[in-house]
Every structure is written in structure tokens, then in C-alpha cells.
Amino acid sequence: MGRLLNSWRRAAAFLLALGAFGTTQPAAAESYSFGVIPQRSAVLTAQYWNPILDYAGRKAGVELLLKVARSGSESADAAARGDYDFIFSNHIFQPRVASAGYRVLLSTRDDPITGQIVTLADSPIHDLQQLAGQEVGFPSASAFVGYIVPIDELQRRRIDIKPVFGSNQEGIMAQLKAGKIVAAGVNGKLMQAYAAREGFRVRVLWESVAFNDLPVAVHPRVPAAVATAVRDALADMAGETDGISVLRASAERIGQKPPYGFRRATQADYRSYADFYRATVLREFRASP
């Protein structure tokens, strides 16, 4: 019976696809990879992004295939290699990744993000100094606001901690919630969303300045028309009835708060990242002048 249903499902999807694309759909849409920074589990990431990419891809006339790396570092490495045609990540601003040449197309419509060092609300730690010598969790070594920004601050304050890495943002947040770490460096917006979803409270020991949230960027190899089509499809989603429904449904899966969707953006909207990399005390991330 399962086999039969699966066959019917595939046939229906195929027919739908044919109907959606109409006569103007090319015989076979080209596929482009869409890499997403692993901020949560791959399944949750796919549940969030696949409907969006499916919608935008059909709008753009291409097939956008989600790619997720196992960890932030692997994702940064893949980005540095230029594995993804499109990418949703701020790793592209890291000096070693910037050489891949990703160009910003969109930014999320929601508020900028900040880096935070948080503890549980009932933690006895109230000051960063109290973290000296402690294990502090971070999403990954490549997480910008989750690791790079906070560790820069700690090093500037000469607070020596023992970094512990999780697989992704929510992974380290889970360890904080479980009490396995006394503090964590996190994406403030993601922390808020996760805490609200999981039902616990955190105390922010430190918060960075705001940075624009993760951009959608495109690799130079992607044809401009495709890039533009994808950009427009994603940017217009929030204004479309079906698009906003998709965005809303996906946001509900991860507890994301509105506004949903994307806006057109450029590299200039992310100058703050470049400025940070130029000024950071972290030698491995410092950009050459």
C-alpha cells in the first residue's frame, strides 16, 4: 500500500509541477544548489527551507536544491570552496570565504542580529568576568555572531574561557538549557526564538552591536538572469498570498517571529561585517587591510 501511495504521490507531484510551470516551463528546469548555514538540525532546516526554495524556484523557473552542511565549519568550508550556487550564510564575509566571491542578493526582512553571551536566567553568573576559566559553548567556530563576535569581545576583555562547540546554534542552546554549559555565545535573535519555543529564560551577559541578519548570496558562476530571478522570487514572496503562506508555515516550524520573507540587498548592507573582520583581535579571522 505504501508503495502505491508513494507512486501516486510522485505522479501527482509531477503533474502539479507540469501544471505550475505551464507551457513556458522549460522541458527540465536547471538545478542550483542553495546552501544554508546549519543553525539547527538538518531536518528542521529542510522543513523550513524546502518549501521556500520550492516556491521561489518555481517562480524563478529553476530548481533550487537545499544543501546543508553537518556543521557551521563544514558549511564555511563548503562556502569557501564555492560548493553552493546560492547561499544563505554570513560565513561569506569571513576573509577566507570572501575569496569565493559570493555576492549578496537579499537580506531577511526581520531585525538585525546581535551576538550575545547568555546564561540561564537563574545562573549565579552575572558578569562576563565570572566566565573566566569556564567552559562556554558556541555554535561553531564559524558562527559569526554566535562565536566570532563574542570571543572577540572576551579576548578584548582578556577573559580566558574554554570554548566548547556544538553542531549549530540550537545545538549549543540545547546544551545551555540542559545545564551542560554555564554560558553560551549565541545569535541573540535565534536565542530568543529558541528560548520562547523551548520555554526557558536566559540572562544576557553581553550583547554585541547589531549586524544585518544572514544574507542570501549568489556565486559568480550563476547566470545573472538566474540570480535575478531567484532574487526577485524570494524578495516578492512576502507580498504574495501563496508566498506569505509558505513563509508563515516555515516560520512556525522554527518559532520565527515576523516579519517574514526577504528584501533586496547588496554587499554594502553588510559593510559592518567587513569592518569587524578588519578590526577583530582574532588573528585567524582578521582580514588583511
Binding site: R3, N6, V43, Y48, N50, P51, L65, L66
Partner: peptide, 8 residues
Amino acid sequence: TEIAVGNR
């Protein structure tokens, strides 16, 4: 059976 996540 299919492995489908998020309509894909």
C-alpha cells in the same frame, strides 16, 4: 516509502 522533507 519516500523521504520527503518540506515538500521535497
